[in-house]
Structures are given as structure tokens and as C-alpha cells.
Design a protein around this nucleic acid. Sequence first.
DNA 1: TCTTTTAATGACTTGACGGTCATTAATAAG
DNA 2: CTTATTAATGACCGTCAAGTCATTAAAAGA
Lengths: 231, 231
Amino acid sequence: MTVKSLKDLNPGDATSRLTGCAANGTVRQGAEGGGMPKIVDREKMQAQILDAAMEVFLENGFHVTKMQDVARRAGLAKGTLYLYFKSKDAMLLALLQRYFEDIQTRISAIPAPQTLSQFFYALRLSMPVERMAATRLFFDVLGPGFEDPRAAQIIGAFFEWLASHYAAQFQGLADLGELRRDLTPHQAGEAVTAMLDGLVIHMAIFGADAETFETRRNATLAVLESGLRGG
Amino acid sequence: MTVKSLKDLNPGDATSRLTGCAANGTVRQGAEGGGMPKIVDREKMQAQILDAAMEVFLENGFHVTKMQDVARRAGLAKGTLYLYFKSKDAMLLALLQRYFEDIQTRISAIPAPQTLSQFFYALRLSMPVERMAATRLFFDVLGPGFEDPRAAQIIGAFFEWLASHYAAQFQGLADLGELRRDLTPHQAGEAVTAMLDGLVIHMAIFGADAETFETRRNATLAVLESGLRGG
DNA sequence: TCTTTTAATGACTTGACGGTCATTAATAAG
DNA sequence: CTTATTAATGACCGTCAAGTCATTAAAAGA
């Protein structure tokens, strides 16, 4: 909390020290003579720390988790974390960025559906049960208890992207006559996004097992599918 | 946090001191002779404190709000709060209980709809824009950052009730042929509950203005309505 | 091996806030 | 007014965790 105007998620020099980064992950800079320092790959270290952080955040939540916990999981000392992330908040923001970029990449890779049924089939696949844990984590960070608005911005931007992604697919389906005529693809995209959120969040609230979730999901998707086809 | 086994939301004697509470709000107990004490109505004080707490929690969230803030808003000293609530957590739980009992009462008062359209009309009314702030507050308290499971239980119980309430209304609509045949009223209730959650939560995430929300809501409800009618 | 430069460490500092309690104020009967 | 009883107060305490920094370790050229 209390982070106001981070320009950079990295501490130290604003300009990355990785300018001369080699492919194998080690770095070389111009040798001036005398002894040469220990070198690490900052990006790789940051990634490893984020892996550890994601694990413990998912287990216990952001606010409950201490930097000490992250350090222990990463096999480092607490102080070391601050060589790679300016603060706990900065670490979280980097983590969110990476997480949603990853989801976005995976969803983008799914080929455009030719029918509504195909669309819903893909939907189920891109919405794994494991996402429940992540959703619970985001609760920690979306409410007014988290001062930095960037967390909400990152997540919000993802949902906007998702809605417009669905809208694009619905445009294609509309051209094929698979979508009711009185809804714009854009509106349909928004509706589906809201629906999916509701599903996952319900799972998170109730701590429902996978089976309960599937029943609910199927009912919800059935309603949604015939609702989109038109009545 | 760290509240493990609260038996009582009230501090002090387990048996309420309000046994002899008069209708006007003051209390009398058997006089033994000598001077008599200053008396206040515990329930009324608790209600006033909860009013103040709700205000500041909605403005800033649960974790960010200090007991000092609640006290200031209530026009009391911090220590006084602990005469009426055992802890900050206990205060929140009492607040949640009251809030959801209130919503439940109001929703229960809506007469049973005779058509699907009527149902959705009532739905819009029972889902005011102001609820967005409350939803944001609950994020604070639903995630893994909040140790006490009772908060999630209270909210979860409300949604279970809501789903079954909708299910009962859908049963009636099914008898009138207003509902598709391949969905049980129970399933439809779950679906609608998930959908509503998604809507409100989206508002909270995006900080959307009322107009944006209405557009989204209308699209979503249109999909839902024709989805429930059958395709 | 020696030296230079950077990386890693964890005890310590700092600040914050939930909760307590000795003290003071208020009430009302005698 | 006195006195008994309860209510209210806010300085204080204990705890806890984020973030710092003087110190130590590691790497690698000379």
C-alpha cells in the first residue's frame, strides 16, 4: 500500500541494467580493467521470485503473505527481494501483469469458432477450475483496501480486452447467422464477460468443489447459449 | 483478524444486560438502594456504531479503516467501541449480518412475478447502482486475506438463499409456461444468481458510471431473459 | 591469490494499529 | 450534596510486518 507514483517496477537505476544481456542469461558489460563482479540475470531472477510469490499468494492471499514468506519460498533472504522489486506492491503489480498477459496469450491462440456451440465449448476449456484460486487472490487486491489503483486497472483492462475479444468472435458468428439480430456483438461480448465473472466468483465464494461448479456452469452456459441464439 | 471462536458478538456478560429494556430505549433494573448508574441502550448504541462503521467502511474499505476512524465518525472515543463490540472483526460480522438481513427482507417483500418480464423488471429494481460500493467492500472480506470464515459464510448464505428464492419464483413461472422445460427452476435460480453477481462485480471493478452499467445490464438481462424462455 | 565490483544477507528501524485499562465523567437515587 | 454505579475516555502497550543498510559472500579478471 501507500505506493503513489511508481514510475518503475524495478528498484535501482531506471534504465535497465540488462542492455547487454546475452541469450544464455548472463550479462557482460564493458570491462574497465581490475576485478569483475558477480553477475545475475535480473529478468530471470524476477521471474523466479514472481513464481514463488504467485505460489504463496495463491495459498494465503496477498495481505496475509509476508515478504518473509515469499523470500523463504524463493530460497532467498527478505532483503534480496528488494533488489528486484521496489516494494511488495510493485511485486504484485508485476505478477498481475504477467498473469493476465499469459491468459490473454492463451485465449488469443484459440481459433475463431464457426458456431455458437463451438464458442461455448472453447469457453469451458479456457475457464479451468484452477482459476478459482486466482480469483480469490484478486479479491484481496481489487477492493478499496488496496490503495494502488494500478491493480484494478490491470484486471479491468484484461476484462475490457476479453469483452472485445468475444465481441469480435460474435461478429463472425453474427455473419454466419448464429447470433440473434437484436444484440450487437459488442453487447453480447459484455454480457458473456459478466456471466463468466459471476460463475468463477461464485465458485470462489462458496469454495465449491469442481462437480458443483460444473453443474452450475452448465446450467448457466445453457441459458446463455440459447439466450444468444435468440428467442 | 485472528478471531477464532467468538461465541458472542458482544463483549462483557454473555447474557444480555437488556433483559429489562423498556420500549423507549432506556433500561431499568431492580434498585438495591443507594445511587443509581448512568444507563444506555446497548442495542441502540450498537446500531449507531454500525451506521458509522458502514459509512466509513463503504468509503475506504474494511482493512484501510481504523477503529479510530469509526470512533470519530460515531462521535465516540476508540475505547468506547470496545464496550459494544468485542473486536473490529466482531463489528464487521454484526454489520454484515444486519446488511444482508435487510436486503433479504426487502427482496422478500417483492410480490411473486406472473411473467418473466415482470421478474426481470423487479430484478432491476432490487439491484440498485448503490450496491456497487457494498460489493467493493465485500471484496475486502471475502478473499483469503480475511481469516475469519464467518464473513464468507454470511455472504455465502445470502446467495444461497437468493438462489433458492429465485428458484421458487421460477417454479411458479414454469407452471405458467413462462420458463423453458429443459432447465429445473433450481438450475435457473443458480444461473440468475451467478449472472447478477457478475454484473455488480463488473461495475465495482471498472468503477463504471451508472449509464455504462445500465447498458451492460440491459444487454445481459436481455440475453438472460430469452435464454430462460427457451430457444 | 588478490582485488574489484556487484549480489546477498538478516538484524534493525520505523511506523502503524488493534486492543487495554486506570482514570474521569455522567447519571440518578437518597 | 453525596454516593454508588456504570459509561466514556485516550494515553499507552504489544505486536507485527514492510523496508533499510552495514556487513559478508560470490564471481571473475589480472
